[in-house]
Amino acid sequence: MEVETARPYFFGDIGFWAERTEVHKAAYRGQVSELQSLIQSGASVNIVAVDSITPLHEAAARGQTQCVRLLLDAGAQVDARNVDGSTPLCEACSIGNFECVRLLLEYGAKVNPMLTSRTTSPLHEACMGGNADCVRLVIAKGASLEAYDLYYGTPLHVACANRHLECVKVLLNAGVRVNATRLHETPLHHAAKSNNVDMIELLVEFGANIYARDKYDRKPVDYTRPDTPSAHYLQLYESNPLSLLQLSRIALRTLLGARAVDVVAKLDIPNRLFLSAISLHCHKGALQI
């Protein structure tokens, strides 16, 4: 079999910088037999294109699980970075391919790669695409809940800005800081801008500060449309401060994070108080008990 030979013009850490090769194309298209033949013929699985994309990036970005496994078994570098600093795990999280994400993690992909001014974390990517299963998986593998991106903020900012309620639930139950800020803007500001009342209610009940002001000195309610459920909800909370019971729930959740339900269940307190302490975790299916 004739293997395409690219003309290299720079020798990098993991191979030659070249035009997109047949290995890249086979990985992208999910052509397992073709890719296997190329590898057996001596083609490099770590050759990179002009944008630093490896065949593993191509396969992960398209959710080609069989090609991902084939490349990894042949020695592909699992944490290779493209020109933007994105790893194959970031690509798989972005499209929400659970099996690809699981496979890359199984082969040692870093769940918290070093971030740069051009890089988002795998958790950011999963939240951006609304892939709740992938969000759960990378969190279970130790993804940083507070990973900070210069343009987007935390993963919770990203989930709220993109209106992915299920991802917001997963993050909150994992113990994310609900009042994290980017340029003084909180996740609640994003939820208010989208007039998503379910998300607003969930964030508030997990302790979101309705009085927080962004760089324009605007509160979340200032971004809601008049006479909408979102505006009415935030106005109601402004005129009726949280009860002592609600404040206690928030304090407990803030202190214990994702351990709250397990820890509270072991306390020697009356059942009615236990149910009260965890009730907000169950709000709108945020947590199944």
Rank of each mutant, 00 (worst) to 15 (best):
L70I: 12
D84E: 08
I139S: 00
Q31G: 10
T65V: 14
V48S: 04
H157I: 07
P122M: 09
A18K: 04
A132N: 01
L72I: 09
S41Y: 04
A147Y: 15
A159N: 15
A143C: 11
V78F: 01
S86C: 00
G129L: 14
Q40V: 03
S86H: 10
V158W: 01
K110W: 03
A74E: 13
H57K: 10
C127K: 03
S33L: 14
T116P: 01
N131K: 12
E106N: 06
I53F: 10
L137R: 13
A26Y: 05
A60L: 04
V138K: 05
V83C: 07
E19G: 10
A109L: 11
F98R: 05
L156V: 10
R29W: 09
P122L: 02
E146S: 15
E106D: 12
T54K: 02
L145S: 08
L89R: 01
S33C: 12
F16D: 07
D84T: 14
T119I: 07
Q40S: 06
G142Y: 05
A59C: 14
G108C: 06
G108I: 03
V32A: 12
I39Q: 01
P122T: 10
L71S: 00
E125L: 10
I95G: 03
Q36K: 06
D84H: 11
Y148E: 09
R163E: 13
A132F: 01
Y107K: 15
C100D: 04
N162M: 15
S37N: 14
D84F: 12
L56N: 00
Y107T: 08
D79M: 02
K141L: 01
C90T: 05
